[in-house]
Design a protein around this nucleic acid. Structure first.
Lengths: 299, 299
DNA sequence: TTAAACCATAGAAAATATCTATGGATATAA
DNA sequence: TTATATCCATAGATATTTTCTATGGTTTAA
């Protein structure tokens, strides 16, 4: 195992294609192929499945890449310390459910500490992918919620993946609706009130368990179900179709505009929103800064 | 920078001699010399001073070695994970002031988790070296005390070295004396009582500031001063010369024998004993186990 | 069916690591 | 003082590793 090999496989994993990665690394494709095969042979594992349309990462490979990223991060500290101002980009990634305060903190972080050269990722994605991203160090930190329904399952998943959850705040469930919705005049909403309207929720891909849902009460029956991936799309539908979605009620007028309003939902449940980190890695300085921005914002 | 180079310099630093390290690494001495020079050139630093009697580590070198050890530790995780039962030895090091409970915990750790192949170091050493060892990752954890006299200085030193202190317990100062000492009959002892007897303290090498003393009240005047390095030696002198030493009063009959007794010292001071860890590194699993053993023992 | 994309293999060339031999400097012992 | 041993650096030869170019097989897309 050499640092070079580790850099190679991480680049290949990021790009998803050996030929392209070789170009990025300024070496010939067969050299890269050979280096990867050598590494795989050394540890008797298969890191990549070679498909005919690029590569895919095996499960073993994901695990190995986790180790690799960690080593490289340490090695980069030396470069940073001794190489003066190299143009190695600051890299920082967050995976999160769709919360505007997470994006807000991300924007703040970028403004304050982005500097001249960076590569920041804001991954608003599916619950399982959040866990997966953080577990494999593709993201430094993840944000998701627990409630009494999903808590056991999520906590077990986190534990299995070597992660831990730190609560940020507890929220009573709210309903997001468009300003012009017939429900907008009510002070509180009950599940009954919502019955006639389309329910919006976020796509959860293949991990389609109710436990991974971004919305509480996902088990409740509902006639009109709309599944989306994008927060803006969701908001458009809230407004255009008089739809609703159930969430934490944390809403920023700045980011969401004034067309969306939150109403308390009259039900005995809670959402505990917090962040997840790997147990075995110290959070980077950037991560620490991001978390303190999150904490500030939710106050 | 390659992992090989890092392994090389760490070995050289440990052994203190390029020729000998080359043997240990199964390479020729000029190869090792060249590898080191190459690395030094790459980052424009001098890691080792070549004396005519082996090498010494420069200040730059110490810092660099800190990074190197950290990277290698991460890299070893891969070996551990994928190489099955290699015979890489479990390595674990503690640096501490002279407390028997620290040794006890160390022994327990070894019994429980030592396994078949290990390299454990128990470094009972001078206060400054404890800080230095942990700061440069030569030791995983250090144990020392704070009191109101040394607290400011020690805390600043810790901070400068990227370390943090976690308290284990607070102890009232005690005097250790031999069972046969004329003072043995008293219930409590005052500084006046001690005046006629030889005071024993631990050598602190070149960092001879009072602040780094292992004993509180080190600034008090005393006619008969005995300075030693070894706990057994110290105990021998307590018994043989009717000497005394001031410490935390935590004493294990099992380890120290019944010839030594502790008497409370009548004075308004305290000792807060705790452990130090680097801020920027996650403690290893072995370190976590050791700390929980310490915590159990001091209960 | 053709072209393009992608990864693997083979053999040559280049770069790197290691070796043996040797020298200079200094401590150690006779 | 002188001989000897220790220790690190240098030089040139050799071995190993990495990378390159060229090419082939397979699949997807047009």
């Amino acid at each position: 195992m050499t640092l070079k090999q580790l850099r190679y496989i991480v680049t290949v994993a990021d790009i998803g294609n050996i030929t392209e990665a070789a170009k990025r690394l300024y070496i010939a494709q067969p050299s890269l192929t050979a280096a990867i095969i050598e590494l795989e042979k050394e540890y008797g594992i298969t890191i990549f499945n070679r498909g005919k349309k690029g590569i895919t990462i095996t499960n073993e490979g994901e695990e190995f890449l986790g180790y690799a990223r960690q080593i490289l991060e340490q090695a980069n500290l030396i470069e940073d310390r001794y190489m003066g101002q190299t143009k190695r980009k600051t890299k920082f990634c967050v995976s999160s459910q769709h919360y505007s305060f997470v994006v807000e903190a991300f924007v703040e972080l970028l403004k304050k500490y982005g500097g001249e050269s960076y590569e920041f990722h804001m991954r608003e994605t599916q619950t399982f992918d959040i866990i997966d991203d953080v577990a494999h160090l593709r993201s430094e930190v993840g944000v998701l919620y627990l409630n009494k329904f999903n808590e056991t399952v999520i906590r077990k998943t986190l534990k299995d993946n070597g992660l831990f959850f730190t609560p940020l705040f507890k929220a009573k469930p709210h309903v997001f609706i468009g300003k012009g919705s017939p429900l907008a005049s009510k002070k509180k909403l009950t599940p009954e009130d919502l019955k006639p309207y389309p329910r919006l929720s976020y796509e959860q891909g293949s991990h389609n368990s109710f436990y991974f849902s971004e919305e509480i009460l996902s088990t409740l029956d509902c006639d009109k179900d709309l599944i989306v991936c994008d927060r803006a799309t969701l908001f458009n539908m809230l407004v255009g179709l008089n739809g609703y979605t159930i969430c934490s009620g944390v809403i920023s007028e700045e980011l969401n505009g004034s067309n969306i309003i939150a109403k308390p939902l009259d039900i005995d449940d809670y959402m505990e929103i917090g962040y997840i980190l790997p147990i075995s890695t110290k959070p980077s300085p950037m991560t620490v800064k991001y978390i303190s921005l999150l904490e500030e914002l939710v106050k």
